[in-house]
Each structure stands twice: as C-alpha cells, then as structure tokens.
C-alpha cells in the first residue's frame, strides 16, 4: 500500500516518517555508502525541509518498506543543487510537468530478494513505482527524472519499467554509482508495471484506517486507547478527524520520533486525500 505524506498531513505521520528516515539511513548510509549525513540513525537532508511530497510503501502490517521523495524541478531540487556531478556542469532540466524523484529505496533486509509476489523486493519496488507514477499523473505531471543507483536501474529494467533515457553521466557516489533516469508517467507504463507485478486495484492506503491500525499496534490494549481509536473511526469530516488526532496527541503524547520532527508539528490544516 502507498501513503502520500506532504506538509499538510505530516503532523499525523511522525512515526511513519521516522521509520522512513531510518530506512534511508540503512540504505544510503550503510548499504550504498553515499556521502549522506546520518544523525541518531536517521538520514535527513536540507531538501526534507522544503516540504517535499513523500511516496511511502507500507507492508500489510503498515511498516515502512519503501520510499521516495518528490520535488518540482521548477524550484530547488537535488539535481540543480547537489548532484551537479551527474549533470557534468550542465544546467538542469526545469519544467512544470517534470518532477524530480530522489532517495528512492526499498527495504531489502525486510523483504525477500527472490520472486515477485507480495513481500518481495520486486513487488515493493513496483508498487512504489505505480504509486509515484499515478500520484504524479494525477497532478498533470508527464515525466519524472529520478536519481538512482545501478542496482535500482536494473530492477526497473527487469520489471518492464526501463527508463526511456538518462541525463548526464553515471558517476561514482560513495561505494556505488548514481545516475539520473527519465521515466514517462503514461498509462502504458503504469499498466506495464502493474501487469509485471500483478498489482490490481488502487494502491493508495485508507489514511484513517492506517492511523488507527498503527495506533492499535503501539497500544497496550487499554480502554483509553480503544476510546481514542473509536474517536478516529467515528470522525466524519476533516475537522472531526483533526480534533480526534489532537486528542491522541494530548493524551498519549505526540506520536513522533526523536528526529526534530516536533518543529513540523504546527497545526496546518489537514488535507485528507
């Protein structure tokens, strides 16, 4: 399942984001050896402060198993500002209908490396791709430029989702290499990836149900928590949901990790998808 988190709902998803930043630390810091800054087991950079949109893959138990970060190429983004090596000093592409995706990663430790069924790396990758492409497409975006390593590039090629081209050069980055690939957000590509991985129906998660389930998992089965979950379930409009979640925060303490997430927890309106 896919969850989209951006500036408007991130105050509801501190624990999901915290898991995501830990996954990024394991993948980009430990496994790929990229030159990323890791603090307290979380990889967070300056682009995370720019209100990006995160496309997050969750398994059946709502654990984070994959993620990617989207930014407009019209504004500050990584290829323009920090991946200059890849572009070999050239100016970056800048287009209203082109989004940049970075920090694309999948939890290869939690998932099975073989096969393409549920619970496999291949399935999680494809679902994340479908979620990203569909989210971009629903915004009128026609193409995505994505910074990936050669392993992810092979995974894309193998899953009938090969980039149609690359920009700049493949350059050494830490222990592995990085490249910028172009993907079109066409219905044809989405259909191909869905067919390859056997993904049918909507990939996006029901946000309310997901939050209640994660709360239930973290709870100790006491009646107070049950009451709070009931309040979330009973919410029929965004204002009521906001009130229910504020109550959760007030009673249980903010559901956030130790990553400085608190600074983002001001009550911006929640735009439930």
């Amino acid at each position: 399942m896919i969850l989209i988190v951006d500036a408007h709902n991130r105050h509801h998803h501190h624990s999901v984001l915290d898991e995501m930043f830990q996954l990024r630390a394991r993948v980009f810091g430990d496994r790929l050896g990229w030159d990323v800054r890791i603090e307290d087991g979380r990889e967070i950079d300056e682009f995370d402060a720019l209100d990006p949109a995160y496309v997050i893959g969750l398994d059946d138990a709502f654990n984070v198993v994959a993620c990617v970060r989207a930014l407009q190429t019209t504004g500050p983004h990584m290829l323009a500002d920090v991946f200059a090596d890849i572009l070999q000093g050239e100016a970056p592409l800048r287009s209203a209908t082109l989004w940049e995706s970075t920090r694309f990663c999948v939890d290869t430790e939690r998932l099975a490396m073989v096969g393409r069924g549920p619970g496999s790396v291949s399935r999680a990758t494809c679902e994340l791709m479908v979620g990203s492409l569909e989210y971009a497409r629903s915004n009128g975006i026609t193409d995505i430029i994505t910074v990936i390593d050669p392993v992810m590039n092979r995974v894309l090629k193998r899953s009938d989702n090969a980039p149609y081209d690359y920009v700049g050069a493949t350059v050494q980055m830490g222990e592995t290499k990085a490249m910028a690939a172009l993907l079109d957000c066409t219905e044809e590509r989405i259909a191909r990836v869905r067919a390859f991985a056997g993904i049918e129906g909507p990939v996006f998660v029901d946000e309310g149900a997901m939050m209640a389930a994660r709360l239930r998992q973290a709870a100790h089965g006491d009646s107070l928590t049950d009451y709070l979950i009931d309040q979330i379930d009973a919410a029929t409009n965004p204002d009521e949901l906001e009130a229910a979640l504020a109550l959760v925060d007030a009673v249980l303490g903010p559901q956030r990790g130790a990553t400085g997430e608190a600074q983002h927890s001001e009550h911006t309106p929640d735009f439930v998808r």
């Binding site: 500036a7 209100d51 989207a70 989210y135 629903s138 911006t268």
Partner: peptide, 24 residues
C-alpha cells in the same frame, strides 16, 4: 484562504473538493 495556505506548502495540486468540509 485555505486554498492559498494549502498550496504554499504543497508539491501536488490542491483540489478544492477536499477542502469543502473545513470551516475556513
């Protein structure tokens, strides 16, 4: 205006249909 507040921090577009239930 919630359409402006939402869009100022959004990557994706803001559908007004999703805002209709907000007081503002």
């Amino acid at each position: 205006d919630p359409t402006l507040i939402a869009a100022s921090r959004s990557v994706g577009l803001v559908e007004w249909g999703r805002l209709r239930d907000f007081d503002s």
